[in-house]
Design a binder for these strands. Structure first.
Lengths: 119, 119
DNA sequence: TTGACCGTGCACGCATCATCCATGGTATAC
DNA sequence: GTATACCATGGATGATGCGTGCACGGTCAA
């Protein structure tokens, strides 16, 4: 295993805590866009600090773009999945497919990560 | 996001450090089987302690089976992917496909995680 | 004026992981 | 027979990642 190989590196940051769940939340937003506080409220248990860090890392990797509307009331920061970010959802879909097949205790709950969710 | 949902839980342990890379190494072994010291040597940077912990977690999740040959010289512990474990490789394949498409600096290196690898 | 919301970033404490070492049993080297 | 190396595992101690709590500056509503 070569530390410089792209897939190895990709696994290392894509599997950082909250990464995939953040991408999934962005995917669920209209136009694949969500605001900071919206993400914070949707991802139960995430802290603003880590969310801020992760969004910055994802922007640096070209997985999302950050748009700040400074003219607005409280400043709005909006995050949108790029074309490459959209395709990471395929990875999450594969995880869901696996979980539904092998984790039979799964039940539909009407939320993002269940049988009836958008994936 | 419901903490009890299977996909959510699945993401949380599948994205723990070393998890996917361990599964990939097992997949590469003949009969999808590898010994402890073999895994330790292949996964550059992993510590024996964490490897031992991860293998235990993966066994508890039914992703691999553990076979100990106590009659052998130094005791051999062999780990083999189960049917469900084999299908997790599809997730890794999806990550590789994404990386090859969007991370153009990737180069073939003849090792597991490059264009010419087994995935 | 007061308070609430927004997105960030700091200081601090805990949980996870790395580093180093120890174990018991058996093979080979000398 | 003594020494040394390998094997898989687990404990003790540091380093790093992440959670907790708090504060900021700016603008709105009450």
């Amino acid at each position: 295993m070569d530390d410089a190989c792209t897939v190895n590196l990709t696994v290392r940051y894509l599997t950082k805590k909250w990464m995939l769940l953040i991408i999934l939340e962005l995917y669920k937003g209209s136009a694949h866009t969500r605001r900071f506080s919206d993400l914070r409220d949707s991802l139960d248990g995430i802290t603003p600090k880590v969310l801020s860090e992760r969004l910055k890392e994802l922007e640096e990797e070209g997985i999302l773009t950050r748009n700040v509307d400074a003219t607005a009331f409280p400043v709005r920061a909006e995050y949108t999945l790029t074309a490459s970010g959209l395709e990471i959802v395929d990875v999450i879909r594969e995880i869901k497919r696996w979980a539904l097949k092998w984790k039979i205790e799964n039940i539909p709950c009407g939320k993002q990560d269940c049988k009836v969710c958008v994936l």
